[in-house]
Amino acid sequence: MTQLFPPVANTLARAALLGAALLLLGGMGLLVTIPFTPHVTRQDVVVEQPVQFSHAHHVGGLGLDCRYCHTGVEQSRFAGLPPTHTCMTCHSQLWTNAAILAPVRESLARDEPLRWVRVHRLPDYVYFDHSIHVAKGVGCSTCHGAVQRMQQVRQVAPLTMGWCLDCHRDPAPNLRPREAIYDMGWTPPADQRARGEALIRAYMIRTEHLTDCSRCHR
């Protein structure tokens, strides 16, 4: 009988076996990793908006308060997007002919709201409420980042369930006094742990229920 395979077949067969094993392990590793990447979380992805509205200019430069436009943030689940009239409080007087504002003027003329593209998307099986977070000491920049430096708003946090749970399991590092909620430049002081614990008591946050399933999945 002659050899059925040339000597190189030995190496090929072993390499194929090892390769298949590595491919399997690598593939599984990849599948585990992908949900953490921006491809899935959309973290730091800039979306194109109908108007190139700059938070850097309006918040960082002019110093507008968040609530000037997002009026619902203290009372409702949804922080709210401003009606075109809010834009026009200034822009009926300023930059009235600027090309960049054409869609805004058109919206007013046609009485049709601007169609902003949602940046922070949560799945529909998640119940999220802005008002309770604001009321219990979670500041805007904790989740939305340094909006005052963004030309185009992007999602800073991964918004994964694990990211939510990080804070729900241990809120103390992120809690602020009420007067600092809208402070976009707030940084935690050196004794934040102790202050955070005190704030938990002051806000009467019942931490033992913060991770109940029904807290967010209703």
């Binding site: 009988m1 002659t2 050899q3 059925l4 040339p6 000597p7």
Partner: peptide
């Protein structure tokens, strides 16, 4: 695997 081995001769 050892597809090629002297004994197969």
């Amino acid at each position: 695997p050892r597809l090629n081995h002297p004994v197969f001769d």
